[in-house]
Each structure stands twice: as C-alpha cells, then as structure tokens.
C-alpha cells in the first residue's frame, strides 16, 4: 500500500512529465530541427549564406574617449542605433581603428571606428530565417578558450538561460519518465532492454570516438 506522500509524488511526477513537455514543446522543436539542419549542411532548401544581404554605411559620430572598451562600444552602438552581442576581434597590428562586431541571430554588424576623423563604418550582413534558426541553436555569446569575449547583451543572457532551462527540463523529464516506467510492472523487462540497448549504443559510440582516451 503506497503511502500518501508516495501517492502524491506519483501523481505530480506524472503531471510534471506532461507539463514540462508541453511548456518546452516549441523549444524542443527548434533545437531538434536545427540539430538536423546543422547535421546536414548540404540541405539546399535551408541555405542561408549564399542568400545573405550585405550593406555598408559610413557616418559621423562622437567617439567616446573615456571608459572601458565595452563602455565605448556601447556608446557607439547607441549612436549608430544597433544592438546585439559584442564580439571583440583581433586588433590589426599598427591600426588605430577601434573595431568590433555586433551579433544577433539574423544580423551581423562589423563596426570600424576611426577616432581621428570621428567616422564609423558599419558593414551589415543579414541572413534569412533558416540562418536565424541555425544561429539560435548555439547563440551563447561565449566560446570555450576565448577569455576576451563575455556575454554582454541582456538578450544573449536570456537566451542562454533558456538553453539551460531546456537542458535542465530534459533531464527532469528523463528522471520523471524513468520513474513512470518503473511503476509499470508489466513493462519493466522490455523497458530495461530498450534502456540497456540505448545505453550500450551510446557508450560504444563514446568509446568509439575516443572520448575516454
């Protein structure tokens, strides 16, 4: 006879499994579908780079002198009317230009500021919806091994948080799914075979690709 706590847990575990799945449904569709797109870069229908639109504008702005590089870049972006995640690029040797990129899914701005002349050159690249979806799959604003670039745009932080939330949600769904399965006595043997098969294939794969090397 299950205790009241166990019974309540069972009910809410079941509900939680549905609720998490329904809440994250659109995120899961995006990440699964874009996973396929990233896996098959040769799919013609989802091409985006050859169809990109490029434009370049030159304008005069008041270049801020004080503050950190981030402060100055933000000030310039405000004047230029662009927003997004700042990406620091390697400075060209001997150059006096202040250069950086601004990225957000669908748009990339290469900004080049000339402090001596107060001139800003912005090269804008725009990609289509397929490209936006692909970028969203890994839009984190940071890269392992790149200490210079920080997540500095609030929307990147929110998107990164949503990626975390989806991953945590998936883990919870796996845990709740395992608990649901264990409660079905008649399905335990076949379920154990499916789980063992999945674990074996996954383990062999990891060993095969020299993960553990």
């Amino acid at each position: 006879m299950p205790s009241r706590i166990e019974y309540t847990f069972k009910i809410w575990n079941r509900k939680g499994h549905y609720y998490l799945g329904l809440y994250f449904l659109f995120f899961l569709w995006l990440f699964s579908f874009t996973g396929l797109l990233l896996n098959h870069g040769s799919w013609r229908f989802a091409e985006f780079w050859p169809n990109r639109k490029m434009s370049s504008t030159t304008s005069q702005i008041e270049l801020p002198q004080a503050g950190t590089a981030l402060d100055r870049a933000r000030d310039a972006m405000r004047q230029l009317g662009i927003s997004g995640e700042i990406e620091w690029t390697a400075a060209k040797p001997g150059s006096t230009l202040f250069e950086f990129r601004v990225n957000r899914p669908g748009h990339n701005f290469a900004v080049s500021l000339d402090p001596a002349q107060g001139r800003a050159v912005v090269e804008h690249t725009e990609i289509n919806a397929w490209g936006v979806m692909r970028v969203l799959h890994a839009f984190t604003g940071v890269r392992a091994g790149d200490a210079r670039n920080e997540r500095d745009w609030i929307m990147t932080k929110l998107w990164a948080f949503s990626m975390d939330a989806v991953a945590a949600g998936m883990m919870l769904m796996i845990a709740s799914g395992l608990y649901l399965w264990w409660g079905l006595r008649s399905k335990r043997v076949l379920g154990a075979i499916a789980l063992a098969l999945g674990s074996t294939v996954c383990g062999l794969l990891l060993a095969g690709v020299r993960w553990i090397s």
Partner: peptide
C-alpha cells in the same frame, strides 16, 4: 515509452 527509454542516454548527453 520504449523509444524514450532508448533515447534517454543520448538526450542526457
């Protein structure tokens, strides 16, 4: 149920 169990190690990874 069975596909979910099979895929769970991959999804976890």
């Amino acid at each position: 149920l069975y596909l979910g169990l099979f895929l769970s190690p991959f999804v976890l990874l």
